[in-house]
Design a protein around this nucleic acid. Structure first.
Lengths: 226, 226
DNA sequence: CACTAAGTATGAGAAATCTCACACTAGGAG
DNA sequence: CTCCTAGTGTGAGATTTCTCATACTTAGTG
């Protein structure tokens, strides 16, 4: 983590994501601009963060680490979003890990200094409430899908969701984590899709060869959305 | 659902769970006392509730219903807790089902009338924030356990958690839902426990016969807690 | 009393998923 | 250039979990 002392950049980012409107008067201006490199931890498992972060650029992921060494990927963070709000609200809580996927820029408020001010700021509280409730709803959806549908179904939905120009090109390791299955099993199901003619592999990656078949598989997953 | 017009009872329940301290001045007194019978829905899948509920007595469960007909049990509600706060915060959201397990009494504020007042009440907002973030943390823990551990491990932990006087006596159907596996599989694993001598069945239910073995199995699950 | 719904119980076979082992490739670091 | 790491890909076998079918018990209801 490094602090970036570029007020112009900071101002620009603040404007871009309407940072000031998240707080009551005069609070936003105390934010610092921080930068995190890929693989770095924004919040580390079990360690109380020093800041309340607001991700404005980059991409990160939320993990839960289990005692048996397994990690479960809970959610992705994409801008704009809060990070570390749980720990701000409840200093007792056990922080989950937040790890950077693509370089991240965060506007960050020092917790120690502004905690009490934040906790009595209705604008901020209302925004966090809404943010938390959306996040929770998303987590619930993801978790229940992981339980209720088979990998083929979820993968089909995921491929359709993330494909560009008819090509599917995601890192298998990350996808396996996200879909909550072993790497091996993911590869196995992808191989099935190729065998079944749903996908075709070439130099550029996996090409969608039978969109309708994938849609049929994904249908139930997606229609649980509303 | 039925409304209970018993001001004494209402007052008593309000005092018991410190209902008034959840809100700014004069808001709490507008709450009505509602009663729900077993199996009834407090919030129904996809239908915006008319109230913000605060469960003061009883027990209920939160479901997500998938398009393939499966239900995933997300969480239990035990008093005291909010119900319907997500829908209050964001009228667009898709409500999940909340179904009563044991008869429930709720203090309830009509959304239509008090929504804007609630959304600008810092005391209320702060309480909801903390509530939401705890709930979310619990959901994450449950979900990642369901993924990261085998049923034997989770069941062992669950048995130790819910046993009274050396006896395990929960409804298999509900437990299967909670642990996110099929009823059949749960019975299968319980049978295994009996075969292995961890449990013994008699008239009163399942008796814990080898606590140490169960603790060994549950160890990893529980030590992910902190 | 007969009927129904919910809970309990068990069998058999299939499907989904995991672990471990091994091999290959591409890119960055020294 | 060589080493190392991350990502990719495949095989074999074991484990976990699911579906379907079927049966018995119990409490509640008309």
């Amino acid at each position: 983590m490094e602090k970036i002392d570029d007020d112009d950049l900071k101002q620009q980012l603040m404007t871009q994501c309407h940072f000031e409107s998240l707080f009551g008067p005069k609070l936003a201006q105390h934010a610092e601009l921080l930068h995190f490199k890929t693989q770095e931890y924004i919040v580390e498992n079990g360690i109380q963060p020093e800041y309340l972060f607001y991700l404005v650029k980059g991409k990160a992921k939320l993990y839960d680490s289990l005692a048996n060494g397994k990690d479960t990927l809970i959610d992705f963070f994409t801008p704009p979003c809060f990070i570390g709000e749980m720990e701000l609200l409840d200093a007792q809580s056990e922080p989950f890990s937040v790890q950077v996927i693509d370089d991240c820029y965060c506007l960050a408020l020092p917790v120690r200094k502004y905690r009490s001010q934040l906790l009595s700021d209705p604008t901020f509280l209302q925004n966090v409430c809404i943010y938390l409730s959306h996040k929770n709803a998303r987590n619930i959806k993801t978790a229940s899908r992981n339980q209720g549908f088979t990998l083929s179904q979820r993968l089909a939905a995921f491929i359709l969701l993330t494909a560009h120009n008819g090509y599917y090109n995601e890192k298998h390791t990350q996808v396996a984590e996200y879909l909550g299955v072993s790497y091996r099993h993911l590869l196995f199901v992808i191989a099935d899709f190729v065998k079944a003619g749903y996908l075709q592999k070439d130099q550029r990656g996996y090409q969608i060869a039978d969109q309708k078949a994938l849609q049929r598989l994904a249908w139930e997953v997606n229609s649980s959305d509303n």
